[in-house]
Design a protein around this nucleic acid. Structure first.
Lengths: 349, 349
DNA sequence: AAGCAAAACCGAAACGTTTCGGTTTTAAAA
DNA sequence: TTTTAAAACCGAAACGTTTCGGTTTTGCTT
């Protein structure tokens, strides 16, 4: 059906290698350049990236593995990452593994078969679902939102602990002393970090410290609602609550509305992520925000540098033993958007 | 690095064709099967899908082109579609074109070069960004949410007109006679359909009909807020409003909150999509819902049938002239989730 | 034991590129 | 005009599969 490089060669009377060279940005005599371009146009030639991929052993495709596409936080990151990658000529294969370890394994395997050049992952599980295979093959991995001890790759993190600590301290500053937290699953890296931040703030400010002030949800809406309910029951006199991810924030707000609790008069709230939701809430929610675009950018660019820089580095003699490369971990600052969901209990500013 | 089929052949003493046949589900003598499996395990052989793609001219990859990944409606569809496609062995290449016609063209071109086997698209523009090329190459396209006159492909639609009509009639039923609408851009298919539904309902029920009751937004949050503002200004006595997509619903709610309007006492509201947001609003929003999972399922399955059925159909003698195949258009029903955002002005049930 | 159809097996060629080593052309220098 | 280094050009081989046409083996039947 489609024309091949051979057709172009035949048509122009030039050699195969010349056409290939031209297509890859090589130099060609002016008159030949014109001939080639004409032939390409006339024959509707389009380079076959599959064949190219076979020959060069680089598919110009990178795989993304995430727990949930259907989640604003991940969706934002992917939108941005896909954009950057594509502008560098890389296609993106996305695998949503629905926060399921088994599916995650399958996805990694799937992408390995497809010979993607690299991976951007936000791991669901706590153990390697097959990353080593990539690293052994010299294919770079960038991990977002978590570190894994036994996988030596670049990581893009967010200062979750600091974010939580800051949020809680803001509540303390406003005069609250009995502050609840809706924490995430114990086996999720970010959840543990955010909880640690809460605990640090509690310790450092010396406010009420009680296990019953921490309710655990599973990072879902339903989980957030249930946690809110338990928290309220166990601590009727709690005056503020910090919720540690977006879905649970939505759930908690639903529950708060159902219970007829007034925010912020009866309960002050600080939520997480998704600024649009925060703005559309009544009253506007104060939230911790994550720099999604920045995360995506760091991830995509880190990956591309490893990928494109490879040749140069391979040429240089000091390529580390068997492909090991020093890995870098970037930790980004979170933001805070002030709403009207926190009540000042004192006169301090 | 990795072992190839040749290595397996050598190791087992079998022929190339035999290994290939085995890998593709062909029959092999028991003892050979064992030998092959052993060799595969020992050499860590993994079939190279790129080479296979080159040879078979089928990449087992399908492209998805959408206006915004970062949009719950699309994200839900893609999550589901990706899942189904992958379970059939198809990879998914997603291109977010940010509702930009130019980017859309690039994306389609990009995917064409990558030789994807088929396309699932939600077109942004109104003219063909390059779909014909796919169709000419015999590659199926499934279009979601819109039809294009000059592109003969399968379409998965939603009864937008009926949904809007139904929503407005519910408001009329509740006794409202001056009902506003926040409509979408005139050049968006779904937006026109929803507006037509509104207009039909208005006509059929004989309630107040006035151009100033239709404010146009651009399907964004900011656009929804602005439209709400204009609508309210032009019609202070309007008692109900129907908002025709999710983002504008969020924007309108934000504006309503800012203006201090009470829902539903002063203004009844029916929004669109995203049930979670609807539930987290105060009061709970009544909304039109779209069957996202069903849409994805129809799209993915339609595509797969065309793809997998191809051989059979090609064998059959009655393959239509030059690859034309009859196309099918599926129109799905929308749903409605009752909230507390509509006030009954009368005693009728 | 011979005959035979079906099943299993085989290697070469092909898919559309890139790359390697080497040849020809160009144009600047002598 | 000749020399020469650089630039442009060239075709064969290779990447890892599948497929085609044909050969061998298997396991029944007679």
């Amino acid at each position: 059906m489609g024309a091949t490089i051979k057709d172009i060669a035949k048509r122009t009377g030039l050699g195969l290698a010349t056409i290939s060279s031209y297509l890859n940005g090589g130099n060609v005599r002016e008159k030949n350049r014109i001939k080639i371009e004409e032939a390409i146009k006339e024959l509707h030639f389009e380079v076959n990236e599959v064949a190219r991929g076979l020959k060069t052993n680089r598919t110009k495709t990178i795989g993304i593995v995430i727990p949930e596409l259907n989640n604003i936080f991940f969706a934002e990151i992917i939108t941005e990452a896909e954009d950057i990658l594509r502008s560098h000529g890389y296609a993106t294969m996305i695998c949503d593994c629905r926060s399921d370890i088994e599916r995650e394994k399958e996805a990694v395997d799937f992408l390995y078969h497809r010979r993607v050049d690299g991976l951007i992952v936000m791991p669901t599980g706590t153990s390697d679902p097959g990353f080593q295979k990539f690293l052994r093959a010299g294919k770079p991995i960038v991990m977002i939102d978590r570190k894994m001890r036994d996988v030596a790759c670049d990581c893009i993190l967010v200062d979750n602990e600091g974010a939580a600590e800051d949020a809680v301290k803001r509540l303390v500053q406003a005069g609250h002393t009995k502050i609840g937290m809706i924490a995430g699953p114990e086996d999720v890296y970010t959840a543990r970090e955010r909880q640690r931040g809460y605990q640090r703030a509690v310790r450092e400010t010396g406010i009420v410290c009680d296990d019953s002030l921490i309710a655990r949800g599973n990072y879902t809406i339903a989980g957030g609602a249930a946690a809110m309910c338990r928290l309220r029951e166990a601590n009727p006199d709690m005056t503020a609550v910090f919720i540690s991810n977006y879905e649970m924030t939505v759930g908690a707000i639903m529950e708060i509305n159902d219970l007829g609790i007034n925010v912020p008069e009866e309960l002050s709230v600080i939520g997480f992520d998704n600024i649009d939701f925060a703005k559309a809430s009544v009253p506007r929610l104060s939230i911790v925000t994550q720099p999604t675009a920045k995360i995506a950018q760091e991830a995509a660019e880190t990956l591309i540098i490893k990928l494109e820089g490879k040749d140069r580095i391979m040429d240089a003699e000091q390529q580390d033993v068997d492909g090991e490369r020093t890995t870098v971990t970037v930790t980004l600052k979170t933001g805070f958007v002030e709403g009207r969901s926190v009540r000042a209990l004192n006169n301090k500013v």
